[in-house]
Amino acid sequence: MKQLLTLRVNGITHELSIDPWRTLNEVLRDELNLTGTKLGCGSGDCGACTVLVDGRSVSSCLTLAASVDGKEIATVEGLAPSGEQLHPVQESFVENGAIQCGFCTAGMEMSAVYLLGRNNAPDEEQIRAGLSGNLCRCTGYNQIVEAVAAAAEKMKPS
């Protein structure tokens, strides 16, 4: 039997009727056409599908959509809603060479946003730990780590 769900995704409310075995990743990508969130492994090991649920970073591939009924979901598409001004994390990723193939990027950015929300001045080790649930095969991580440090700098309350 389909479940009736209310998801608030990037501030927009969606009323959905969903099979209970659907993951949040499937609902975002297939039902809501929010394909910025990727699927890299399906078992919570790579982080490419990372989104925020009520502010916490989670693997959308291991989250049942039914279990996040009524919650606030944030995806990469919501980081720069105006479509013009990038979020400082996105801006830093662009400027610091943190993006190569881009498949890990959305998940990395969401992990970075989560990290910076908890710790607005992380040191290098804390950044690495914060990103350690996100695999990348292209960049060797170092430019991503630099990008997150740069984003922290930009986001520092003046």
């Binding site: 919570g44 693997s59 989250t63 914060g130 649930g133």
Partner: peptide, 9 residues
């Protein structure tokens, strides 16, 4: 235990 996201779930 595991990684950041798994600890959040």
């Amino acid at each position: 235990t595991a990684n950041v996201q798994i600890r959040n779930m």
